[in-house]
Amino acid sequence: MINSPPALEGVMDIQIELIRHVIEETGSDWDRRAHRFAVLAESAIHSGLARAWRTSRPRSPDALVFEAWVELARAQLAGRFRDPRAVIDNCYRAAALRPEDPTPWVVTLSVLRSTRGPYNNVLSIWHEVVSRDAWHREAHLQMLRYLSPEECGSQSRTLDFVDSAHAAMPLNAPTVALELTATVDQHHRIVARGGIDALLARQHLAYPRTAELLNRSLREWTSPGGLTHSAALADLNTLSYLLMQANRLRDARNVFDLIGETVTPWPWKLEGDPVEVFIHKQEQATRT
């Protein structure tokens, strides 16, 4: 075994302390906590930070969840898990150490979704999350995709899930973009069919229910103090994307103004390189 040079170990220790502090300062703000875990995990995919932190603090729930989330991010990049059972075991240990935290259950849900786990198992973990945080954004997105026709569900199950959530969802919940996200998925489902369906896909976005969804999102999200959750810019990216698909360029321009230069990979990557697609669409909207 080759040990890291002392200077590199010192740098890693500093990085671990910075990550620990950034996560700890979220306290019980579960939305912000999950957002920071996700962003930090993405940045640590190609490093040994997660394992080093968990090895040095084996009873730290944050270290356990961080390693689990990094492994999840690696699996999503590679298209497979090296050891999904080990990831879930880390989550269970973290959940036992901090029972009130929904985050370990969210990662477990993501693993089960990625590995096409049985519905009853997924539903059980889903209940663990929402019993701790009823409107957890990441958990709702994971369930939305799990219930999709591309994975383990159907279009009707997806719609039932979205309708049930929106019937009780507060206006300022972190999950406010759930129906909009489902609409993007459905739009691309129609486009993927090809033929006449693909040619008429834009017309589906003009249907009364979808048009009202876009109008409501535009009205509520762009008003002062409209979106306050951690992934607000990601949701605004989704809104601007769908407005462009609907050829509502003037409305999209207002949303682009709020976004600035913060490009999120999804949904722009559905049409190519996210940054290139974003810039192209932004320029289109600006010319109106």
Rank of each mutant, 00 (worst) to 15 (best):
W135N: 06
H136A: 06
R137W: 03
E138Q: 12
E138P: 00
E138I: 06
A139P: 02
H140D: 10
L144R: 06
R145W: 15
R145A: 01
Y146F: 12
E150C: 04
E151D: 09
E151I: 07
C152Y: 10
G153M: 04
S154V: 03
S156K: 13
R157Y: 04
R157W: 11
R157Q: 12
T158N: 06
F161S: 08
F161G: 08
V162Y: 10
V162A: 03
S164Y: 01
A165M: 10
H166E: 12
H166S: 07
A167H: 05
A167S: 06
M169S: 02
L171T: 08
A173E: 01
P174D: 05
T175E: 05
A177E: 09
A177N: 10
T181L: 04
T181V: 07
T183D: 11
H188A: 10
V191M: 09
R193G: 14
G195R: 07
I196V: 10
D197E: 14
L199Q: 13
L200D: 05
L200I: 13
A201K: 12
R202C: 13
R202G: 14
Q203I: 13
Q203V: 11
Q203A: 13
A206Q: 15
A206F: 14
P208E: 07
P208D: 02
R209G: 11
L213V: 10
N215K: 14
S217L: 10
L218P: 01
R219Q: 15
R219A: 14
E220Q: 15
T222Y: 04
T222R: 11
T222Q: 03
T222W: 01
S223T: 14
S223Q: 15
P224C: 06
G225D: 04
G226F: 03
H229S: 07
S230E: 03
S230V: 00
A231W: 06
A232W: 03
A234F: 00
D235I: 02
N237I: 04
T238S: 04
T238V: 01
S240N: 02
Y241A: 04
L242G: 09
Q245F: 10
Q245C: 11
N247T: 14
N247M: 14
N247E: 15
D251P: 04
D251T: 03
R253T: 07
R253G: 01
L258F: 03
L258Q: 15
I259P: 00
E261Y: 05
T264P: 00
P265A: 12
P265T: 01
P265I: 08
W268M: 00
